[in-house]
Simulated scan of single mutants.
Amino acid sequence: MSQPSSRPELTPRFCFNQTALRDFLRLSRSTIDDSITQNLNALLTPSTTAFNPTSTSTRSVTPPSSSRAIPAQTCTSFKHNVLFPSWASRSDVLDYCAGVATSPDPDDPDSVLRQIEDEKVRERVVDERLDPYSGRYFPREARTESLAMLMRNERMVEKVVRARTGSVVGERCGEGGGLEGEFDEWRRAQGSGRR
């Protein structure tokens, strides 16, 4: 069975390193959510009885889904020990980095360069009759703006991934509905258990 993703150390430097941030999210999703069917198949125990050659002479009428059903206790254990901790670590990273993206960034290495470019543009005299495109100016994007856009995109991806995972787990575990409500309850229980 897969192990939940461990949460990286949350620092603004980690968030602004978009390669490391994306790699963490990609690896966490691929380990648990993208391979959810394989993870759930690993929960099924192999045949508990020895092979019976006479079983091949009769046709089984049990629906295929019933043979793939996972016992409730096993499903609960998987969700609470693997799936939800992985979701929680990703949620923590997304929430923290979204907070960093909306905070002032005094350490932005490009802020001075952006200020100089803005000042040059204000001083420039443009005659748009001679060159209609000369008045265009596309300011550099601050790294907090870039991070905020990445967080919006990653939250949408996370929503889709969780919906798909919830659908597969619900089908295999014989549960209805999504897992978001159950995940929220698990988070609250984990929060009260830490104190």
Rank of each mutant, 00 (worst) to 15 (best):
S2M: 13
P4D: 05
S5E: 13
S5Q: 11
S6V: 13
R7L: 13
E9D: 15
L10Q: 07
T11M: 09
P12K: 04
R13S: 14
R13I: 08
C15G: 02
N17K: 12
Q18C: 01
Q18Y: 03
T19N: 11
A20T: 06
A20E: 15
A20D: 15
F24W: 09
F24G: 10
R26K: 12
R26G: 02
S28I: 03
S28C: 08
R29L: 01
I32N: 05
N39Q: 13
L43E: 08
P46Q: 12
S47T: 12
F51P: 00
P53Y: 05
P53R: 05
S55T: 12
S57A: 13
R59K: 13
T62S: 11
S65E: 15
S65D: 12
S66Q: 11
S67T: 13
I70W: 04
A72H: 06
H80T: 15
H80I: 04
N81P: 03
V82M: 03
L83S: 03
L83K: 02
L83C: 08
S89P: 07
R90P: 05
D95N: 14
Y96F: 14
G99M: 04
V100W: 02
V100S: 02
A101S: 12
S103V: 05
P104E: 04
D107G: 02
D108I: 08
P109Q: 04
S111L: 09
S111P: 01
L113E: 14
E117P: 00
E117V: 02
D118I: 03
D118Q: 12
E119F: 06
K120A: 11
R122L: 07
V126R: 10
D127Y: 05
E128H: 07
E128Q: 11
E128A: 14
L130H: 03
D131C: 05
D131W: 04
P132E: 09
Y133Q: 12
S134I: 08
Y137N: 13
F138K: 10
F138D: 14
E141R: 14
A142T: 14
S146V: 12
S146N: 03
M149L: 14
R152H: 10
E154H: 05
E154C: 04
M156P: 00
E158N: 10
V161N: 00
A163P: 00
T165F: 01
R172N: 03
E175T: 12
G176K: 14
G177H: 13
L179Q: 13
G181N: 14
F183C: 08
D184V: 13
E185T: 12
E185Q: 13
W186L: 05
W186C: 08
Q190T: 03
Q190V: 09
R194V: 09
